[in-house]
Write a protein that binds this DNA or RNA. Structure first.
Lengths: 257, 257
DNA sequence: TGTTGTGAAGAGCTTCACAGCT
DNA sequence: AGCTGTGAAGCTCTTCACAACA
């Protein structure tokens, strides 16, 4: 894999430091591995096999091994992976070794909750500022930070480069906020507003949408109830311990954690 | 997902009512189309072409047409799609024509915000109950609903079948909550807790994790800054309101080099 | 003419199964 | 023996390009 599809561009000077050009699907799973590894480290494990780590991260072991092989792999055959070494490696690839500044725009219901979310501050991220445009909110202190007016965004960005902008405004204002973030030099956006954002190439947008998730679940519910039909509903198979359980939705192993 | 439970079975008797067996990727996009269609309907459009709708939903038109073709397709060549007809069709496929009950477990920071999220109540979903185990929270009224103790879940589920359970507890409690939801007959779970859930086959779990999204964005930031290297940062192309900009993630595009 | 619906090609991801190392 | 790393096969999703049609 990773057969460099030689595009038109001239060859790199080689001697690449560590930019393995990971598949997007792999990138999306690394954070999950990282969390599992941290849990294992806390529990005192020094090494872990691909099978154990795969279970802890909720994937199958072949996939996990292939994912890790993409980043140069630090496993030992017959033994497994060194937990702390792997943690360092993944953190380095994800760019978590440097502290990244996050700004949050929109402090309604959801934004307020996000501002206080612990997982935010942990793992290399730091909330640099909170913004809103509502005069009622500007000036308020939320979880130790004062809400500033969005107009101050350029100054804040100038002082301290912003790595990621989180948008938790209503849908109507979201595109405008995105434009302002981009203008301030932000190239990573996490959008909680229920709308599509248009941004220039080079800017990354990821989206989290509660309503969409619910509707996807609704589809599966609907299908289950329609499809079940006559065959006595299969209820819940008591012990379908088989490791080969075709993840009907998700595996079903009784791992005691 | 439970594609074909009996793999070796002979051909179906056909005569399927309306279970087109959609690709998962398509299902995940239907809610986005639905939202765009609602906006178009409000704006007075009666028909829409695949190109227009694709732009509004942030996908390309070929993908959109293929997606819609999977559900039997209700377009007219040379004209486009009838907006209201398509809305009805998608809502029917997603199972949104019947009202679905949602329960929310865990009313900390995030759960509190979710309870008040408007998009929740809209579009066929109804919050049937709020649960927690913290004595400080049980009994409180939040956004018009009283928080009940999680022990009451079985009763509530008996009265009114629960379609989806939303978990917004800390990671430690999440698996136990999931087990209780499953025991109460819930077969769709939306998990906001940062952990892997193990559930029996037949139960659908979807996950939303802020920290993971941030880490994925971090990776792309890291890559951009490493890869960019010397070339004076290309700053931002002036007009960002341009309609052209497709979705992000892909930087290196018009790099004149 | 304008736009949908779709076969076919292409790209990406997952799974298998085993060679190779400890 | 045990476990990782990986070529190859298989599957899913995306994109292309055009025939079919109003």
């Amino acid at each position: 894999m990773s057969q460099h599809p030689p595009p038109g561009t001239p060859g790199h000077p080689a001697a690449v430091p560590a930019l393995p050009d990971l598949p997007e699907a792999t990138v999306a799973r690394l954070p999950e591995y990282l969390r599992a590894l941290h849990n294992l480290a806390e529990a005192g494990h020094e090494t872990v096999s691909s099978e154990e780590l795969a279970v802890a991260a909720g994937v199958n072991s072949a996939k996990l091994r292939k994912d890790l092989s993409h980043l140069g792999s630090y496993g030992t055959r017959g033994v497994g992976y060194d937990v702390t070494l792997l943690v360092d490696q993944i953190e380095s690839v994800l760019g978590l070794t440097q502290r990244r500044s996050v700004v949050l725009v929109g402090l309604g219901n959801l934004g307020h909750a996000l501002a206080g979310y612990a997982g935010f501050a942990s793992r290399g991220f730091r909330i640099a500022a909170l913004f809103d445009v509502d005069p009622e909110l500007v000036g308020q202190r939320i979880h130790g930070l004062t809400v500033r007016h969005l107009d101050e965004l350029p100054q804040v960005a100038a002082e301290d480069p912003i790595s990621v902008g989180v948008i938790s405004t209503p849908a109507e204002g979201a595109q405008s906020v995105a434009d302002q973030l981009v203008a301030a030099g932000v190239t990573g956006i996490l959008n909680f507003a229920p709308c599509v954002l248009t941004v220039p190439a080079g800017v990354d947008v990821r989206k989290v949408d509660l309503a969409i998730e619910l509707q996807i679940l609704s589809f599966h519910q609907h299908r289950k109830s329609s499809a079940a039909g006559p065959a006595g509903l299969t209820a819940l198979p008591g012990g379908l311990t088989g490791p080969g359980t075709h993840h009907s939705t998700d595996a079903a192993e009784a791992v005691g954690s």
